[in-house]
Design a protein around this nucleic acid. Sequence first.
DNA 1: TGTTCTATTGCAATCGATTGCAAAGCCGAA
DNA 2: TTCGGCTTTGCAATCGATTGCAATAGAACA
Lengths: 352, 352
Amino acid sequence: MKRTLRPAAGLHASSSRPTIKDVAARCGVHPSTVSRALSPAMKHLVAADVADKIQAAANALGYRLNMAAKGLRTGRSGLIGVLAPDIADPGFPPMLSGIADHLHAQGYATIVADAGTEGSERDLVDRLIARGVDGLVLATVSLRDDVVKHCLDAALPVVLVNRVDAAGLLPSAASDDAAGMRLAVQHLVALGHRRIGHVAGPQHISTGARRRAGFEASIRAAGLSARHAPVEAVETYTRAAGREAALRLLARRTRPTAIVAANDLLALGVYDALAARGLTCPGDISVVGHNDMPFVDMVAPPLTTVRIAQRDMGEAAARLLLDRLAGREAATDHIVLAPELIIRGSTIAYEH
Amino acid sequence: MKRTLRPAAGLHASSSRPTIKDVAARCGVHPSTVSRALSPAMKHLVAADVADKIQAAANALGYRLNMAAKGLRTGRSGLIGVLAPDIADPGFPPMLSGIADHLHAQGYATIVADAGTEGSERDLVDRLIARGVDGLVLATVSLRDDVVKHCLDAALPVVLVNRVDAAGLLPSAASDDAAGMRLAVQHLVALGHRRIGHVAGPQHISTGARRRAGFEASIRAAGLSARHAPVEAVETYTRAAGREAALRLLARRTRPTAIVAANDLLALGVYDALAARGLTCPGDISVVGHNDMPFVDMVAPPLTTVRIAQRDMGEAAARLLLDRLAGREAATDHIVLAPELIIRGSTIAYEH
DNA sequence: TGTTCTATTGCAATCGATTGCAAAGCCGAA
DNA sequence: TTCGGCTTTGCAATCGATTGCAATAGAACA
């Protein structure tokens, strides 16, 4: 069973990856000295000339630190787990990129698990833990309580991105959902709309619930009656679900003149529903999305939407985690990013 | 410096993660027996009742295998590195998802490095190797020879996805680029177009070069003169680059009546260029993309494009790698997937 | 010259799991 | 009763790097 990759003639060092021992042998020093010379934090303990010699030998041999061994000894893997709701969601990559860049710069590698296509979140987290991740970034918006608890009693540094947990226990980086909805509603109200519908996201997801709450609060703040602000919630953030919900909205007694969707995918579903009913946007109905995901500026009509700082969000989450990892209990636990209204062609004034 | 997470009162087992030793102590057996009982491959070596008891104890304690330790001993990390051209590219996620699903099902975890935003590919590969990855999936289309060589003499199983290397040394899963361009050109020719331009991708990237070659071959096959089939190549697969290249194409003496872009991002850039010149699509100029990335069916006009089987490509690559990892030298080294023409609103007949 | 101090290096244990080999226990057959 | 053979378990080395402690050497000082 044993695989012998190395050639029979074992004259010099082994042909496979050189270890700290090989470097030590080449320099005539003890492996521990090599370890120290190669570690920035311990380097001051070894004589400068020896350190140089070791460094040179390491380069010559093409020595690379074995992270598994280091991790075993130190108890830190240098791995960060990222739990994604669905990699294929176009909104996710910018966030991931923000997370990964920051983390990589500090020597961490990220391993991302896709909750969209794979098993239960709980299992995924367990697998990540088995891998010995030093921390976790949860972008999974469909986070259930037990996962949070699970992480908590695994005593693992955890941060949330693009979501918050109900109890506010976990540090998070998220967009100001209430503010985003306020921007959307105020924009429509300013355009003269008085009957505004909302296609809400899944209510067990923080963005879904908070945006809905934000929508309703904004409606009240604008002095509009809730009766003229119907809400239809979906079960998943998909174009198809958005279509169905919009269809239900359009079937109401008094049809809204504008629809605010909880995200851009749903907004595209609203477009589909309008087309199915022979209605036009923005002529018959104005539509506002949320997230400003890539290419919504190119659809017909270009989507008016609330842009959230996805990449910044990822970066903020990474910083939050890095703080925890370094043992500094950061000042802020909840970073909220300001959204921005991007006005395009899907909203126009309502003519009375 | 030593961190003491465990409470002072160390009565029972330690409070941090239980190890194989804790399980052994609880069952009154030797750690090696636990190791065997918990390993599917070695389980037959231990008595059934003992194995059950161990299994139960492991569950009770919430024992999880330490992958770093296992990896150190066995020399296999269970980690696969994926080198992505750019995570933010909307075409990538489906591929990644195909790769990851297949690999995860076999117990591997993937760690993806983004060549788009980070250092040199060479460095990234080195970092991945330092992590002890068991294999590599290179989706980086901007692959230079030295990276291939580097992997080769690291004796690491490597597969290519969405690209092939010049020498054809590495196994790959890719779309049939020539066939895709043939579909596009034949479609336009059938519509009566005789002057067809091509916005080619970066020529140091296999998709860029092969699609261009495919385009030129198809033009010849259709009996059209190369003089009426101008080509402008870009340096990067971006919308902005597509715009510039299309502008150059439009500035030519005899303007083409149709443009085939090497991918959808470039095609969107072509849309931008047309808008900038006051031209309409498809009225003035027909446009064909490549890849059928998400939402190109929603842009105005909906993009006619060549759909490539991204997810299947990822899966095929994963299978290829799994084969190598298992030591079976697979039958096929190069898997090519058939593309499909998706006709939408960006192409219409050319009126003479 | 003797002593103390410091800078540098070596030693050996350790992290958690795996595995070749040896030992122990048990069976039946001669 | 004894021996060969089989199953089951224990022992101990090992993977590669880290680190507390001990040892050494040389310098500085009295």
